[in-house]
Design a protein around this nucleic acid. Sequence first.
DNA 1: CATGTGCACC
Length: 666
Amino acid sequence: MSYSSTFSLVKFLIVPLKGSLLITIQKLKEPLNYLVFLSFPLPYLFLSFPVFIFNRAFFPFTLSLPFLSFYQGMLSTFLTKPKSNQRLCVWFKHQFTSLCNGIINESTMITRLNSRLHCFIKLTGSFITTSFLLPSSSRLCLQFTPHSTSLASLLHSTSFSNIDDRPLLSRYQKVTSLDHAFNLFDEMTQRRPLPSVVKFNQLLNAVSKMKHFSSCLYLFKQMCLIGVPVNEYSMNIAIKCCCQMSRTNDGFALLACCFRRAVVPYVFTFSTLLDGLIREDRIIEAERLFKKLIKHKLCEPNVVIYSTMIKGLCKVGNNDIAVGLLRLMDERGCKPNVVVYSTIIDSLCKDKLIDDAFKLFNEMVSHKGILPNVITYTSLIHGLCNLCRWDKVSKLLKEMEDLRISPSLRTFNILVDAFCKEGRVDEAEAVIDIIVERGEVPDIVTYSSLIDGYCLRGEMTKARTLFDSLTSKGLVPNVVTYNSLLNGYCKSLKIEEAMHLFHEITRKGLKPDIVTYSGMLQGLFRVGRCGAARKLFDEMQSQGLIPNECTYGIILDGLCNNHKVDEALSLFHMVGDSRLNSHIVVYNILIEGASKCRKLDIAKALFHDITLKGLQPHVRTFNIMISGLCREGQLKEAKGMFLKMGESGFPPNNVTYRVLLLGYLI
DNA sequence: CATGTGCACC
């Protein structure tokens, strides 16, 4: 029987068994040897599903390993958790010894355990209810099956020695390369007795800090295989690796693995998983998990859980709810700290709500007495830079100096970038000098911004020279660096150079991203090479890149400017009601394109569509319309549009007046 | 031995 059909059999069995907590089914014939089942009595709160299916086919061992490891896990829980029931522990040990010595058989063991297990399952089982686990997790459950277990390693796990660990401790800290880590791991696994799990965890952590996530998971799996009694720390590192690889589902699968090994997940585990969901923009699930944690008291939410959830809310633009949660955590006796405040402050700054950000900042400092750190200040400075409020920026920098908070390279990079975007390259260079004076080393981000700055001013020679000098500085250009230079070439219509650079990206082992393609497309359209643009667009999609709003805008704009308004319009109609068409910029482009081609009726129809779609015309939309009407000599209508602006709450700006004036003059 | 906050390209 295949795994999937086993699974459907299990599904079939769920219904009649709903309501029981743990059921071991022994009556089933081969190939289902054991079926351990968790289902929950509250159908509307929990999904019921089998947690583990132990099919002998997956366990090429004569012993009934799944149960053995299950016992082992429980035993280690009883042994290591001081609060666990001592009598239960003694009883369990007794039963287990009887089993090992052949005094009782497994069925008897299971029967005897059954009643006792309930309390244990209650203890560890409820978290499984988060309903994320199966079926995608089943793959990993099996992959990570912790066979552990010869009896020897079980005995070993209870009699650890730390004597030999000391030399290892000093060595793990020096782990600098993956090779090094693997060698050390091999050496550790040769030792008898095995080094303690702590040493293994330290190694795991070193590997995960080097961002070698899959290697880290591999080592974790090896640990399970050779019988290292992995604990909640090991699990957490492994789960974090999954999450960092955007494989949070696999992280949840490891949670199932936790249960298997009687490792009780706790607040660290949950915050890691919550963060994983948020990383993947799975905010609804993140909220669901967060609520469950609190509702079912799966863990006592600490400041990290709250701040993670707040980050998630901010990420999807729910600043208000984020602030609400900030208030709530405070009410519930969990004191917000600088991280929580900084998270929200940063989000407000990104949304250009700088006044709200400062309000919160003042609340934090004055009312709560929480000291801001370099990150808080960097967020504020970034927000101010985006609004070109330079006076306030220097005020904050002064404030930092007074508080002896030293700006970091990131802080400087923001300043460099802001100056470059303003075309103030000299000042950006001055900031770089300061970085160097302070003994820090500008990184690829710093120089990418500077290249961008040169490009913006059309100083392509300078940009190129800087780009070429990066290697001698020991820096490797990344896609962003390439994008800056490529954009520069495109903007100055040096399309051959841009194309050359574009091909170089792949040659250097990098992958052009959506920005690269968008920039390149824009360049091709600007020099009128619509056919080449079309080809590139197809290539982009074959690379699995999905056009975003910006790409879409570039294409529409490109088509319109190349007198292909009809093509632009048919693309627009093809896209239909998608999110891409729900932005006013799209209408601005098309209306402008249509009216420039003297298709004013189409422009008028599009303008009419805007309100029908529930969108709001922008000042620019009005200006484009007025300009189009004037061009056709429909001055009366243009004037009507002008009057309409005031009514709709979009007061005319200087462009409006210029356009209207021009219309009347010509 | 573990978890949460800030930067770069259209």
